[in-house]
């Protein structure tokens, strides 16, 4: 990471600390925002958060590694999370899965070379009545079929 990138990240985190406070309870909201902006929480960002909250870097790392929606390594600009729970599975998850893999040319838990897309599975999205469902960044899409799933990807590009 370049020095100016580090500096701007430090500034950014300091602003977040000002907003959420220095209590440990501010940790997750801060990490969520960093994740959202950068698609992951870098090693440097984790250390900065730790420094400013006066906790150990490994504690931040431990928390990041616990939650599915926080990432330690760079992800694609867009993250597709396909629900793999049984209701969606029965509603045709597998076809969507294949279509997404083919369309993006990657497997699940992988990121495209251009860093635009990451495919992930997720546990129940709470859309069981409208499955199969997937989350693309912050948006939920339901009642998918392979064509619409691919269409959504193309529209998001």
């Amino acid at each position: 990471m370049l020095v100016y990138e580090k500096n701007s990240l430090s500034d950014e985190i300091e602003v977040l600390i000002e907003k959420f406070g220095k209590e440990r309870s501010a940790l997750l909201p801060i990490l969520q925002i960093i994740e959202k902006r950068h698609n992951y929480i870098s090693e440097f960002a984790q250390q900065e958060v730790a420094r400013l909250l006066d906790i150990h870097p490994v504690e931040v790392y431990s928390v990041v590694s616990f939650y599915n929606f926080l990432h330690r390594y760079p992800q694609g600009k867009n993250i597709v999370r396909l629900c793999k729970t049984i209701s969606c599975d029965m509603a045709g998850k597998r076809e969507i899965e294949e279509a997404l893999k083919r369309e993006l040319g990657i497997n699940f838990d992988e990121t495209t070379r251009d860093k635009k897309w990451t495919l992930e599975y997720t546990s129940c999205l709470g859309m069981c009545d409208q499955g199969p469902a997937m989350l693309v960044n912050d948006k939920v899409y339901t009642k998918l079929d392979p064509e619409t799933a691919v269409q959504i990807i193309n529209d998001t590009k």
């Binding site: 129940c124 709470g126 009545d129």
Partner: peptide
């Protein structure tokens, strides 16, 4: 609401 098959809270 994470229990698979639950979406009433939604």
């Amino acid at each position: 609401e994470g229990e698979p098959g639950t979406f009433k809270d939604r």
